[in-house]
Write a protein that binds this DNA or RNA. Structure first.
Lengths: 313, 313
DNA sequence: CGTGATTACGTTTATCGTAATTATA
DNA sequence: TATAATTACGATAAACGTAATCACG
C-alpha cells in the first residue's frame, strides 16, 4: 500500500469517478492512475469502484469505507508535512480564516493587526461567506479556521469552540421617536419597519424567535447580508435597524443612534471551528488565543480530542 | 513521503533508538533504514532524532510530534487493510481479547461459545492479565478489545464502554457461623480472616474503601490473583472469601456457601475498552453485542467518535 | 466515432542488500 | 576493540509516460 495510491483513489472519487480528470488533476498519466488503483484493489482484496465494462460508474460499499479511511490517512500525512514546516520555521506560513462579514469587518481587524505584528511572515487570507459556506470551507480543508455564529453546529468533522456571546442593538437616525427614553419593547419595535440580517445569518433565527414568542410579526422591510448595508438604509430613514452590538461604533457612526436591545433577544454565541484531527501550527493556536483569550493551547487541544474518552450509560 | 519511511521511524522509536535492532525487526537492512529516515527528515525539513556523531541518542521535540502523527497514519493504514479483509471475507479473521481471570473463567465462556457457533472461522485468542496489562495490550495494538473492571480508565487512547454492574458475595464453608441467618454486616465480616483479590484487581479498591468508611480494618490473610485460588483456601477453612458474584456457581461449588454482600460494597462496572480510531470488523461488533446486548454497532460507533463534537465553556 | 479505461513496453527512478568506511563507547 | 551508523555501489524492481488497443455511449 502506497500513499500515492490513496491519493489516486481519493482524487478519482472527488473528480466524479473520472480517471482521466483525476490523472490531469494529479499531473500524471491516466494509465498510471488506472494501474495503481488496480494494484490497491488487489492488495486490499476488494473492489473500490464499480465498473461497467471499462467505465467507472460508482463506488462499491467497501469502496466507500476504504475512501473514508484513505482520506484520514492522507489528512494525517498532510498534518505531518505541516508539522515539519512548523518546526523548521514556526513563524512563517499561511493562515486562512473563513468568516462572516460582521466578524471580518468589526471584530477581526484588531486581532489581525496584533497577529500581523507578531507574525509578519504569515500570509493571512480571509474567506468571506455565510455561516454554511464558512463551515464547509474548513470541513473541506479550504480554510484553517472558521469564525461564525450559526449553522456550523452540524458538521461532525468540525470542533466548535465558543468564543464570546453577543446581543443586538437597535439603530435609528438621530431624533427618532424610539429615543424618547421610555423602555424599548418588542411591541414598540414591531410597530416600525425593520431592517436586519438575511436569513440563515448571524443569529437571525433568534430575532424571529423572540417576536414569535410574543405573538408578534415584525415588519421586516429590507434584509441585508451585512451590517453596513443595514446602516445605510437606516440613515436614509427607511426604518429602524437591528444589528449585532459590535457592529455599532459610536465614534464612527455619527449619523446613527444605538439603543441596547439585549433584554429583548436571546444572546448568540460566536464560535471558532476547527477541522477535527487537523494539525494546528503554533501561530494558529496564537491567533485563536488572540481572538478568544480563554482558548489557550491546552483548552483547544482538549476540545479537539473530544470531551468523552469514557462513555456512560 | 512513504508509508515505509513512517514505519521505519516508528520502529526505531520502539526499538529504543537503535537502528540495527529496528532493521532486524523490520526484516530489512540497517543502511536502508538509515537512508530512508534521512530522506524523511530531509523532506520534512526537521531532524527527528538527535545524533551524537553517528549514534542516535534521543528524539527531538519535532521528532516526538512527527512520531505521534506517523503512528496515527500507520494506524489508519492498518485500518484500511483490516477493512479490506472485512469486506473480502467478513466471517474469517482473528480476534484477540485481553481480559482478567474472572471474566475469562466465569463470564466469557458462554459468549465465546455463542461467538464460535456464529463465526467458526475466526481465530479467537485470549490474553489474560491484570487490568493494567489488559489496557496496555489494547492501547499498543496487541489485542483488539479489553474487558476488565478497573484501572483502564486512564488510557486516553481507549474508548471505554460500560457493560454491566456487579457486586460481591461472601463465600464460606458449609456450617460456618456467618450462615446463622442474621444480617451480614461489615463489622461481622471484619471479625473473620478474609481472603480476597490482590491489589489493583477486580474492584479491590472498593472493598478497602467500604471497610475504611466504617472505621474498620479487614483482616486480610491471603490475597490471590483469581477467584479459584480464593475458593480453594476457603474450602480449606483458612477464612471467609470475598469474590465477584459471577464467580460463584452454586451447582459447581458444592463445597461452599455464598452470602450476598451487595449491600456492603459499592458496585463495580465491567467495561469493554477499544482503541480509539481503530477499524472494527463486523464480527468484533458482534462479539461486543453478545457480551453486552445494549452495545449495538451504532452505540459503539457513537462512543468512539467521542461524545462531544461541541465544547462548552 | 469520440471519450474513457486498459494493455504493452521501454525508460527512468528509487529501493534494497552487500561490502566497505567511519565514528562512538 | 566491539558495536553502531553512514557511505558506496551494483542488482532488482517499481513507477512512470508514450503508444496502441479495447469498450462503452
Amino acid at each position: 500500500m502506497k500513499l500515492q495510491q490513496l491519493r489516486y483513489v481519493c482524487e478519482v472519487a472527488k473528480s466524479g469517478l473520472n480517471l482521466s480528470a483525476a490523472a490531469k488533476a494529479l499531473h500524471t498519466s491516466q494509465p498510471g492512475v488506472s494501474k495503481q488503483i488496480r494494484l490497491l484493489e488487489e492488495e486490499l482484496g476488494v473492489d473500490i469502484f464499480v465498473r461497467n465494462g471499462k467505465r467507472v460508474v460508482d463506488t462499491t460499499e467497501a469502496g466507500r469505507t476504504v475512501l473514508a479511511i484513505a482520506e484520514r490517512v492522507l489528512l494525517e500525512a498532510a498534518n505531518l508535512r505541516q508539522a515539519g514546516r512548523d518546526f523548521s520555521d514556526e513563524d512563517a506560513g499561511a493562515l486562512t480564516i473563513a468568516t462572516t462579514h460582521t466578524q471580518a469587518r468589526y471584530v477581526l481587524p484588531a486581532v489581525v493587526k496584533q497577529f500581523f505584528e507578531r507574525y509578519p511572515r504569515v500570509r493571512l487570507t480571509l474567506h468571506q461567506g455565510n455561516p454554511t459556506q464558512v463551515a464547509s470551507d474548513v470541513a473541506a480543508g479550504r480554510a484553517d479556521i472558521a469564525i461564525a455564529t450559526e449553522a456550523i453546529e452540524l458538521y461532525p468533522d468540525l470542533v466548535m469552540l465558543p468564543c464570546y456571546q453577543w446581543n443586538r442593538v437597535v439603530i435609528v437616525p438621530p431624533g427618532h421617536e424610539l429615543l424618547d427614553g421610555t423602555r424599548l419593547t418588542l411591541e414598540r419595535l414591531a410597530r416600525h419597519p425593520l431592517i436586519t440580517y438575511d436569513f440563515a445569518f448571524t443569529g437571525r433565527s433568534k430575532i424571529n424567535h423572540a417576536f414569535a414568542a410574543h405573538g408578534l410579526t415584525p415588519n421586516v422591510v429590507i434584509t441585508a447580508l451585512d451590517s453596513d448595508v443595514i446602516k445605510t438604509y437606516v440613515e436614509l430613514g427607511m426604518g429602524v435597524g437591528l444589528i449585532a452590538h459590535m457592529a455599532f461604533d459610536a465614534a464612527r457612526d455619527t449619523g446613527l443612534r444605538a439603543i441596547d436591545a439585549q433584554s429583548l433577544f436571546e444572546s448568540s454565541t460566536t464560535r471558532i471551528g476547527i477541522r477535527r484531527g487537523a494539525f494546528l501550527r503554533k501561530y494558529t493556536y496564537d491567533f485563536i488565543a488572540m481572538f478568544a483569550p480563554q482558548l489557550d493551547r491546552r483548552t483547544v487541544d482538549r476540545a479537539m480530542i473530544g470531551a468523552g474518552s469514557s462513555y456512560e450509560l
